[in-house]
Amino acid sequence: MIVRVQSEDFDPEQEARALTATGAGARVSFVGTVRDFSAGSQITALDIEHYPRMTEAELTRVAQQAQRTWDLLDVLIVHRYGRLRAGDRIVLVVTWAHHRKAAFRGCEEIIDVLKTRAPFWKKEITEDGATWVSGEIPASLE
C-alpha cells in the first residue's frame, strides 16, 4: 500500500506501475481534477490545505478499511495540497483486486470515505473572491 500527500503533480500511469499486485485481474484508477466552474463563477485557482500527519494516518485508515471490506490486493492513494489550477489533478486512487467488481467498489468507497474523513480543505479562488468549499462530516460523528 502506498499513501502519499504532496504538492507536486503526479502521473497516474507511472504511479500505478509502482505497485505490482500478484494475482490481480483488475486495476481501477480514479483521478479527481479541479473544476473550472463552481456556482456560476470561473475558478482561477484552488488552494488545498491539510493537516500534516493526520492526513496520512486517516488516508491509511480509509485504505485499510476498504482493503478488508473488498478484499483488495493493494491500494495506492496520492493527494495533492497547495495551489492548483483548473484542470489540475488533485487526487489519485488505484485499487487492485482479483475481480473487477471489488476493484470498482473498493475504489469508489475509498474516494467517498476520503471526502468525509481526510482532513483536507479547499478554498476556491474566483473573480468574485475566495470561498471555502462546504465540507462533509464523517458518518461516525453525525
Partner: peptide, 10 residues
C-alpha cells in the same frame, strides 16, 4: 487537539 470545519478533500 485540532479544530477545523467539515473536510472537503478529493
Amino acid at each position: 487537539v485540532a479544530f477545523f470545519p467539515p473536510v472537503s478533500g478529493g
